[in-house]
């Protein structure tokens, strides 16, 4: 058999009929990447989350040493679009009618054998490498060094809207009342700093779609879910390199 003609990514058993470890991994990765893509558009496969983002817990913790490292896992298929999260967010954070900090997008799969519609809650991704923070001229938007939340100092916002252009996920809007760009801050000022443990949206969700917690704590549900290679986990627009802290999964 001419070995040069085989497809490079296809695992080939050795003479004992065993697929070598490296090639098995490659194949697994390919499979998960495909799963990721099937799950809806530009997604990150579980394999690449593990490889690229959480290759080593220590390395990750050194690079992003937030404690707690606030994060959210969204169980996408559980969302029923009741919009209680949006209402809770509006009430808690005084979000005006013309804006939103979180919203639910609707994805339709006409050819699907099962459910044909899926709802995708979206919010600021609280990125580890936030494009908005780099772009802001006055450090009005910044990454909180304790908890990793991307925040806005309203007093410093000049309203140039570069952060709105820079955000790959449409997480921001200009708030006419506060004269500042506004965005999700995981309810830091309205809840977390007052001792609450959940964001308003996570608390309001009746379907446990939004799992909020501390990614630096291996016992937390967010940690467990993000680091579980049996389930596909993905993020929005991974190609932009912003390293989101909002993860998506199913089940």
């Amino acid at each position: 058999m001419n070995t040069s003609s085989r497809i490079p990514d296809q695992p080939e058993p050795d003479k004992n009929g065993v697929i070598p470890e490296m090639e098995r991994r490659q194949f697994l990765k390919l499979g998960l990447a495909i799963t990721g893509i099937f799950a809806g558009g530009t997604l990150l496969s579980a394999a690449s989350v593990v490889d690229k983002v959480f290759a080593s817990r220590q390395e990750f913790a050194d690079q992003y040493p937030y404690k707690p490292h606030y994060s959210m896992v969204i169980r996408q298929d559980n969302c029923i679009d009741c919009e209680r999260c949006i209402e809770a967010c509006r009430a808690t954070n005084h979000v005006p009618e013309y804006g939103y900090r979180t919203r639910i997008l609707e994805q339709v799969h006409p050819e699907s054998a099962g459910r044909r519609i899926e709802f995708i809650p979206v919010l600021c991704n609280q990125c580890n490498n936030p494009a908005c923070v780099r772009a802001c001229p006055t450090k009005a938007t910044y990454k909180n060094q304790q908890n990793g939340i991307v925040m806005v100092d309203k007093e410093k916002c000049i309203g140039c809207k570069t952060c709105m252009s820079a955000c790959p996920n449409n997480g921001r809007y200009y708030n006419e009342e506060t004269k500042s760009v506004d965005k999700c801050n995981f309810c830091f000022d309205t809840r977390l700093s007052k001792g609450e443990t959940l964001t308003a949206c996570a608390e309001a969700c009746p379907a446990k779609v939004r799992i909020f917690g501390d990614l630096s704590d291996p016992q937390s549900e967010v940690y467990q879910r993000v680091h579980n290679i049996e389930k596909a986990v993905w993020v929005q627009r991974p190609e932009t390199g912003v390293k989101p802290n909002i993860f998506y999964t199913k089940g």
Partner: peptide, 24 residues
Amino acid sequence: FEIENPFRMAIYNVISPNLTSNIW
């Protein structure tokens, strides 16, 4: 007229510059 808060710009561009920002 485009910048929402040009007067804040005059202050915070000076006292809170972000050197990674192209706009700055």
